[in-house]
Computed example of a mutant assay.
Amino acid sequence: MHSTLLEELMENGFVVIEDFLTSEETEELYKAGRTLCMEAPKSDRIIFSTVNSEKQQSKESYFLESGNKVRYFFEEGAIGENGELLVDPMCALNKVGHALHVENDTFKKITFSNRIKEICWQLNYRKPAVCQSMYIYKHPGIGGEVIAHQDAWFLHTEPSTAIGFWFALEDTTLQNGCLQFIKGSHKSGVHRRFMRNPDVTDQEFLLYDRPAPIYPTSNFIPVTVKKGTCIIIHGQVVHKSDHNRSTKSRHAYTFHVIETDNTIYSEANWLQPPKDEPFPLLYERKD
């Protein structure tokens, strides 16, 4: 007997759906990601790093104000001391976010497709909204590590409802930084929070509420997938991706969904919708 989507997500903390995207859709998203590289700013380049976040985006209003915009974040190894590019512009970005699902028709089409709505329906969401989206590049050689984390650190709701949709636009391998999960780790609560600093006089806009948990490397299961695969990620499952040590990139598109019915979205989250622009809904159940 096959387990349902909800049962598998609640058991493991993630679900792998192969061939979710057609080859045409995968190529269309990939090309859109390449186009974003050409549209990246030529000056005032902002670096994104989960390893050195205290030095980088935590002080940047550019990051804080990206919830309803398309903004560009560069790899640490791509920018010199004076802001000059050290690599080919097509290989310089870490990611683009966080409103591609609203501002770019190619990403909007996939994000709000009936297939996505059907998955949320099967997971019993009543009034799901898309709160953020990102195109992630993971370029050869400089594609940075993403530290072990739970998405609920960043997208905290009461009760916890965040889920991620992650689409491989290229084959993922252990060498190019595939996703790695601690199966079942979503059952142990939220381990940490990444929050807006309540002290408005402090130069640090964002901070963690406690030290980083220690997750044994041996607990992680690498999940290598073919392009076109969708991975559904529970908001509390611990996952990471390593530095890209290969000669091949690992492009991906990802977005996050939260429940808005009888759910409180934390005012301390870094990502806040403008008062006149609530997170766009996928649907609203009336039954």
Rank of each mutant, 00 (worst) to 15 (best):
residue 60 E to R: 06
residue 14 F to T: 10
residue 158 E to H: 02
residue 281 L to I: 09
residue 85 L to E: 09
residue 251 H to N: 12
residue 272 Q to R: 08
residue 165 F to V: 13
residue 7 E to D: 06
residue 274 P to T: 05
residue 4 T to A: 12
residue 206 L to V: 15
residue 32 A to M: 05
residue 104 N to D: 15
residue 258 I to F: 01
residue 273 P to Y: 04
residue 98 H to T: 14
residue 57 Q to S: 02
residue 134 M to N: 01
residue 236 Q to H: 14
residue 242 D to K: 06
residue 144 G to H: 01
residue 57 Q to C: 02
residue 229 T to Q: 01
residue 260 T to A: 00
residue 4 T to K: 13
residue 144 G to A: 11
residue 239 H to A: 12
residue 278 P to Y: 03
residue 98 H to W: 11
residue 56 Q to Y: 09
residue 57 Q to I: 09
residue 16 V to P: 02
residue 76 E to N: 15
residue 187 K to C: 03
residue 277 E to S: 14
residue 253 Y to N: 02
residue 114 N to R: 14
residue 26 T to D: 09
residue 69 K to Y: 15
residue 283 Y to N: 07
residue 111 T to E: 02
residue 67 G to L: 07
residue 102 V to N: 08
residue 134 M to D: 03
residue 218 S to Q: 13
residue 279 F to D: 09
residue 132 Q to N: 11
residue 183 K to M: 08
residue 140 P to Y: 11
residue 181 F to L: 02
residue 190 V to L: 03
residue 269 N to P: 04
residue 225 V to E: 00
residue 76 E to H: 13
residue 187 K to E: 07
residue 173 T to P: 08
residue 120 C to H: 00
residue 66 S to T: 10
residue 106 T to C: 09
residue 70 V to D: 05
residue 52 N to A: 10
residue 160 S to A: 10
residue 123 L to I: 07
residue 248 K to I: 13
residue 72 Y to C: 08
residue 162 A to L: 06
residue 99 A to C: 10
residue 201 T to K: 12
residue 53 S to I: 11
residue 66 S to D: 12
residue 270 W to S: 06
residue 169 L to R: 02
residue 79 I to C: 01
residue 97 G to W: 05
residue 4 T to D: 07
residue 76 E to K: 09
residue 75 E to G: 05
residue 151 D to K: 10
residue 53 S to N: 14
residue 236 Q to F: 03
residue 250 R to Y: 14
residue 30 Y to D: 05
residue 203 Q to R: 12
residue 241 S to E: 06
residue 148 A to P: 06
residue 25 E to Y: 01
residue 280 P to H: 04
residue 46 I to P: 01
residue 285 R to A: 03
residue 166 W to V: 08
residue 176 N to R: 04
residue 84 E to I: 02
residue 130 V to E: 04
residue 237 V to S: 04
residue 263 T to C: 03
residue 251 H to Y: 14
residue 214 I to A: 08
